[in-house]
């Protein structure tokens, strides 16, 4: 998909393909993220969102394609899963310090910025799903990133918390003028918070402004046929997981599963 933005991208991939054995996970994908813009990847399960993120982060080599990254940029990464063994006694402070050594005052600031100023000394295992996300975001912010990469930032966060998190991501973008790349499976919640959407299903189905994408026939075909509930929920603006039991095919893990479910 040609990129309307003519500025040099923070990170970009052209004609990215990833094969696993005989299976094509990504086929000829173009993507670019610029400074001061929020790009959202959406797509059903197994559509290659996480693989594409991993390629852009340099965690996985693409089978084909070119990857470019602006020299010297710092990337803040918030992975989808974080399973800290229960036997590891880690406080929020130590978790933050693993990303970058910083004086306590800076740690406090980072926690304040993500809206959880009182968690500095809390044991990591006692955090709720939403708090874990925010603390992980704080760790990424401590690195003063030029680019924030958030993989399914809403996993294990209840619906109200999701809206707050999206608002927070927007605030961070505005304040820091960094690029944001985030993965989501729910267009309706990202709509307001994103500049561009890339709808992925192995290849790029469509991309552009969120309201354009939501009208695109390929988008409708993808989400309309595979997840009957998702589209209906999108129009009705309800929680997106209510029809999960009827549509096991392409539904991501329910976001507002037990708040404590992620505390492995």
């Amino acid at each position: 998909m040609p990129d309307a933005d003519s500025r040099p991208a923070l990170v970009s991939g052209r004609e990215i393909s990833v094969r696993h054995g005989d299976r094509a996970i990504l086929d000829d994908v173009d993507i670019a993220v610029h400074r001061d813009e929020i790009v959202t990847l959406i797509g059903p399960n197994g559509s290659g969102k996480t693989t594409l993120i991993r390629v852009l982060l340099g965690l996985r080599k693409p089978t084909a394609g070119r990857l470019q990254r602006e020299d010297g940029i710092v990337i803040g990464y918030v992975p989808q899963h974080l399973q800290i063994d229960r036997t590891l006694p880690l406080t929020v402070r130590q978790f933050l310090l693993l990303g970058r050594r910083a004086p306590t005052e800076r740690l406090r600031q980072a926690l304040l910025e993500v809206g959880v100023p009182n968690l500095l000394t809390a044991p990591f295992h006692l955090l709720s799903g939403g708090e874990v996300r925010r603390v992980m975001l704080a760790r990424a912010l401590l690195r003063d990133p030029d680019l924030l990469v958030l993989d399914e930032p809403m996993a294990n966060v209840d619906v109200a918390g999701q809206a707050e998190l999206y608002a927070l991501i927007q605030t961070i973008r505005r304040r820091r003028r960094c690029g944001v790349l985030l993965v989501s499976h729910d267009l309706h919640l990202v709509m307001a918070a994103t500049d561009r959407v890339l709808c992925l299903n192995g290849h790029v189905c469509c991309s552009g402004r969120p309201d354009d994408v939501s009208q695109h026939p390929e988008y409708l075909a993808l989400f309309g046929s595979k997840v009957g509930g998702s589209l209906a929920v999108y129009t009705h603006h309800h929680g997106h997981d209510q029809d999960v039991s009827d549509a096991p095919v392409a539904v991501e893990p329910a976001a507002d599963r037990d708040r404590d479910a992620s505390h492995g």
């Binding site: 991993r54 982060l57 965690l59 990464y77 992975p79 974080l82 800290i84 063994d85 693993l98 990303g99």
Partner: peptide, 17 residues
């Protein structure tokens, strides 16, 4: 200590950092 602890917490995150 520090790199190993970081890998123990999350390997991919450690690699990106």
């Amino acid at each position: 200590w520090r790199p190993l602890l970081s890998i123990t917490v999350h390997e991919d995150l450690a690699r990106v950092e």
